[in-house]
Design a protein around this nucleic acid. Structure first.
Lengths: 336, 336
DNA sequence: CTTGGCACTCGGGAACACAGAGTGCCAGCC
DNA sequence: GGCTGGCACTCTGTGTTCCCGAGTGCCAAG
């Protein structure tokens, strides 16, 4: 259907259009990429490519522009992910290594990615779902009020104030804390509800109302944060492209739910997900593409990150940056 | 210099320009605001106002537009802060009351403010500087590694992983924790360094190296977070106004330092700060105005919040919204 | 001091022409 | 059969001109 030269033409169209942001014509194309054929031949190929839906012309007698389908073919078969330069790698490494806590890791990552790709970066906080309990802390702060702090193995910390049904001395709190930790330490968060349900039995009769209150707050914490937090940076990079539709894009970026669906779920944790133009679930983002990857410490994927930019982005470079950053973040998280 | 009628004309110019976004002419102005004089008279007044620098015309034979100086006079002397409607108040109250922790309070606040004013909202996290230590927690997570958690009376939680110089059993950690809390509980954060300096003396000789490591991390935490975190929301609201210069504005919003200076420092904690156009410290924001206020629980100001919008914003309404939100957030923080 | 009248200015939109880039197609050539 | 040069055609974008209308500044009269 499409012989090698036609594919080469498509590749050339994509590359030229990405770098110039102007419809590319047969003549310029034949010159710049030494295809070894004349503009007329290129025109014939382009006609075929257009007929098949890979490229299109904004109006008669303008050059051609890739369609979503064209970019898709380019990404799938015509391009190779471009690795970062050594200097860039070292920069990433040192920049991320300076992070002091989880918040800081995420903030630095999202800024780094935005700067590196000159696009909008999106990073999801490491998921609670797959992490395990490292420690539960109960801190008395008033006679009938304590603070519940939950620390996970990914460095995430969740805290809630709990109003107690009765006054509780430090010793009772300490006892509860010990029981909680003995049973929950190392427990996967998804298994916490089951484990918690069995707990009251192991407590003295008089401690149960107290425990029930605390445990219900603990469960709440897990449920509420099940939908994960997502941050973005680099919105300023949108200003260049997108003279229209910018509002929609910015709105989408502030909708956690939309961002969530955007980053998607990994089929293969090591693979990059690329969503091009109308492949996106959200209509306001039909002019944008998303390159996303999962990241995690070790094998299990904790969360996802990616960048969002105009459909006419430099996919090889962007994909290289996303992949590299995802790897480094994973390393950092595993090491801390 | 400026009699009452001229001031009335200025007010009318500001109000009309804000609502229509088009230069306002003498005729339309004389009609819509029943000033009781003819367009010709208004023209004379306008000429004077222009000479004094309160208004200007984009080009000869267009209507007049307020200058920064004009808006300044309007805000200072010609307008009254417009209180929110009862419905709006109730909406704020219920929306903020649903917050579960400090992060949530701040997130909700910034979104609320953005939605309410249809502009960009900016909220600073409650300052560590003025808060006090509620609790310090040391959580063993490995043989030679603990997690240090600092909880303040404003609900803020900071945590750091500490690598220990030597293995330390649970009992030693517990002892240290007890000493720390005994000495730091209720201590203002600004006084922590002094208090900490005196601590080693109260410890047994063999515990000092261990303590020194932990204490230095504790101090680091305070220093690093001295520059406070700031979040914003509602960037999409910029898309309507600002066809040019949008990039600069978005860039400024992602610079914590710029935002910091933008919110400014309170002279009078209860007062609203208004920065108009070129009064702003950052050149990219010369086309914008900022309305900011301090908020806090009780009397002491913990941090600041505000909104940023085009110079031609509705100041009375915006100021009302900012003031109201600041008050409610203060209440929420005091109550939790 | 206010007012109506009047000449003047200037921006923005409509109409128009034109150059240039790019295409599609066709006939000839390898 | 596929490639190529040539050629007529079709657009867009740009520059030009023209004109309308809103709005002004100034002046003389009330």
């Amino acid at each position: 259907m499409l012989d090698d030269r036609k594919l080469a033409v498509l590749r050339a169209v994509v590359e030229d259009y990405v770098s110039t942001n102007e419809p590319v014509g047969s003549k310029a194309l034949a010159e710049r990429h030494n295809l070894g054929v004349s503009p007329a031949t290129v025109r014939n190929d382009m006609a075929v490519l257009e007929e098949q839906g890979y490229i299109t012309q904004p109006h008669t007698s303008a050059g051609r522009v890739p369609t979503d389908k064209g970019y898709r073919l380019f990404v799938d078969r015509l391009s190779q992910i471009k690795p970062l330069s050594g200097a860039e790698r070292r920069a990433i490494e040192t920049f991320l290594a300076g992070a002091v806590d989880l918040d800081d890791v995420v903030t630095r990552t999202v800024r780094l990615l935005a700067q590196l790709t000159r696009q909008v970066a999106v990073v999801q906080y490491p998921s609670l779902t797959r992490s395990t309990v490292r420690h539960v802390e109960l801190v008395p702060i008033a006679e009938r009020r304590i603070m519940l702090v939950l620390i996970t193995n990914t460095g995430r910390v969740e805290q809630r104030v709990v109003d107690l049904p009765e006054a509780a001395g430090d010793d009772r709190i300490a006892h509860l804390r010990a029981v909680l930790n003995a049973n929950l330490d190392g427990c996967g968060l998804s298994r916490v509800p089951d484990t918690v349900a069995a707990l009251p039995e192991r407590l003295a009769e008089e401690d149960r109302p107290l425990a029930a209150t605390i445990l219900s707050v603990l469960l709440e914490t897990l449920v509420e944060r099940h939908e994960e937090k997502i941050v973005f940076a680099g919105a300023a990079n949108l200003a260049g492209d997108f003279t229209v539709g910018l509002r929609e894009v910015l709105e989408a970026l502030e909708e956690q739910v939309v961002l969530m669906r955007l980053l998607g779920e990994a089929s293969d944790p090591a693979a990059l997900t690329v969503r091009i133009g109308r492949e996106n679930p959200y209509s306001g983002l039909h002019g944008t593409s998303i390159v996303a990857a999962g990241y995690g410490s070790g094998d299990n994927e904790l969360a996802r990150l990616g960048v969002l930019g105009p459909t006419r982005m430099d996919y090889p470079v962007t994909m290289g940056a996303v992949r590299a950053v995802a790897r480094y973040v994973g390393q950092i998280l595993a090491g801390s």
